[in-house]
Nucleic acid binder design. Structure first.
Lengths: 152, 152
DNA sequence: TAATAAAATGATATTTTAATCATCTATGAA
DNA sequence: TTCATAGATGATTAAAATATCATTTTATTA
């Protein structure tokens, strides 16, 4: 569904939504350390996300990556598009090139509702809304991969 | 969610459910040609599926792969387990090692219900049931990857 | 304006997944 | 019992994804 790169990207964007602002930029190293993502690899992804206007960045001392108000109106879908592309997410569960309601693969009817709903969620909810929901739900949001040393 | 290998495997199992019986075995080459899957690669997968008792095989002239009545009581989940393993399918959408209802990742509540439902479908429906449903629905079932030259 | 911090860029390396190849073994039929 | 067929096995290669490295550019601040 998503590549490792895509998962990293989403986590990084959410991290920035929680931890950054135009006044509070965060370096790639800090994000990588906190999320336990390889630094150099994450840096590449952050660059791509920046080029695609999903996040913002500035160079030099005090610089780093951040989300401004405009960025917060983006959706996670835009992050997915930027890193993994549309096809990765949309493709048929069995990998068939032509699989839709009219020409369903054998598991299409089992999988399709799931994908439509998820796609809708990713495309319709802004980062800002997502963060609000996370806070309202009082859910413990760990962005780290290993369970031992949580940060959030 | 699934590797290419896992997708191939599911398609091959469904193919066998439609086209094979103990009296009508199908060679790896035939399956590979019909499904447009690399022969040698598919052969590896079929072997693994055979070892794991998901499908049956016999050597020699007139031999090939097939499903017997017992095999048809298997689920697609067993094919998935055989080729991709549990983790590939179950893992957190964002790749976190610890992500459950108690410690949800930021998109857990968006993704979880669907994964549960899909998992249930794959684990509870036998191959035989699945094929029946496909036939009842009257759906055009193509197992090929390219849209031009359909077989089923 | 010099020093430094941090992103940008591009190249390279590693690992995993996918695919191929050559050979061996078992089976059924002539 | 010999031959052809088809799966079994193991090794190897290729491609894609993941990860790393070295260098350059930009911006801040002392």
């Amino acid at each position: 569904m998503l590549t490792t790169a895509g998962k990293y990207a989403i986590r990084a964007v959410i991290y920035l939504a929680i931890h950054s602002s135009p006044q509070r930029k965060v370096g790639a190293k800090t994000i990588a350390d906190d999320l336990e993502i390889p630094q150099a690899f994450l840096a590449q992804l952050l660059r791509t996300l920046t080029v695609d206007k999903v996040i913002s960045s500035s160079k030099g001392p005090g610089g780093g990556f951040y989300l401004d108000e405009g960025d917060r109106k983006n959706t996670l879908w835009q992050a997915i598009l930027s890193i993994d592309g549309e096809h990765r997410f949309q493709e048929c569960f069995l990998g068939l090139s032509k699989c839709d309601d009219a020409h369903p693969c054998p598991v299409h009817h089992m999988v399709s509702p799931f994908k439509k709903e998820m796609l809708f969620n990713f495309q319709e909810r802004t980062i800002a809304q997502l963060i609000d929901e996370v806070k309202e739900n009082g859910t413990v949001v760990s962005l780290k991969m290993s369970p031992e040393k949580e940060v959030l």
